[in-house]
Nucleic acid binder design. Structure first.
Length: 285
DNA sequence: GCGACAG
DNA sequence: ATCTTGTCGC
């Protein structure tokens, strides 16, 4: 991949105030609406047809893309979707001193390439400043890919962030690549209604509140239920999906639902999660 | 001062 | 994020 905004690359040496100022710049440069060429409905489409298609019908694909066409750039060829996740390495004293970022590139539900990179940790985890701690290894791992990603899926927030510049937004803007944030817990913002125990496949809007640098009521993302139990006494928490860059909130939620197979996490992120753990063991054990 | 707080 | 076996429920 290519860094489009070297001036916005996360620098762990900045002061907290400078980091926050940089995030406001990133939020101003971010595009929280669809701005990409691929067909979002073709993300999970596999040549071997393994997805649990909920919206694509035979009629749709027949009308829009099936046979070898004359090279329409917006034709439904599966885009390259890359999942990104981190794990941490410990030194001889037992302290976390390095971050390992794993990236897994998929196309039509198939893994086409993987890569990972390790860099020294420079700062501790601080809510709201995650990209300054994990950004370096992420960019390094993405540089290691030979394929050019069409979409990046991150483990963390995008627009659902105090200054609307979560890790998915930060990386997306720096690379000028479409990106989506997939968090397992809510950093800030408020669900417009009860978001616990939602039916599978549904979503609830997450709007900005006083803790967010945006007018109250701004749509930041969605609580998305990719999987849910049948039983009445137990339930799965939703994922908090938000735009990173060049993807609108609805499309972000649509894509995450499309990428979910039999697990809660969208496949690219789940695969990156596994690879991060696998590479970690391989390096520590 | 108190509460909230991605990974 | 990470330390980790058993265990509840279908």
């Amino acid at each position: 991949m290519h860094v489009s905004r070297p001036d916005l690359v996360p620098d762990a040496g900045l002061s907290r105030e400078e980091m926050e100022a940089l995030q406001r710049e990133i939020a101003a440069a971010a595009v929280f609406e669809d701005d990409f060429a691929f067909d979002p409905r073709a993300v999970a489409a596999s040549s071997s047809g393994l997805e649990e298609g909920t919206q694509t019908t035979l009629a749709d694909s027949a009308a829009g893309s099936s046979s070898a066409s004359s090279g329409d750039p917006t034709d439904a060829e599966p885009p390259v979707v890359v999942g990104v996740d981190q794990s941490f390495l410990t030194n001889d004293d037992g302290d976390q001193d390095r971050a390992l970022s794993a990236v897994v590139a998929t196309r039509g539900g198939e893994v086409i390439e993987r890569a990972y990179a390790v860099t020294d940790l420079e700062i501790p985890y601080i809510p709201g400043l995650l990209s300054f701690r994990e950004g370096k290894p992420i960019l390094a791992a993405l540089e290691g890919l030979s394929v050019d990603p069409d979409l990046l899926l991150f483990d963390g927030s995008g627009r659902i962030h105090f200054r609307q510049a979560g890790i998915a937004t930060h990386m997306g803007v720096v690379l000028d690549a479409p990106s989506i944030g997939v968090a397992k817990s809510l950093l800030c913002g408020t669900p417009t209604e009860e978001a616990d125990n939602l039916p599978e496949g549904t979503r609830v809007p997450i709007e900005s509140n006083s803790r967010v640098d945006a007018p109250d009521g701004t749509l930041l993302g969605y609580a998305v239920q990719t999987r849910q139990y049948d039983s009445p006494n137990r339930y799965i928490n939703p994922l908090y999906v938000s735009p990173g860059h060049r993807v609108g909130p609805e499309t972000a939620a649509d894509i995450v639902l499309e990428c979910a197979t039999s697990y809660k996490l969208p496949e690219p992120v789940r695969l990156a999660d596994n690879y991060a753990g696998e590479a970690k063991r391989e390096l520590q054990d």
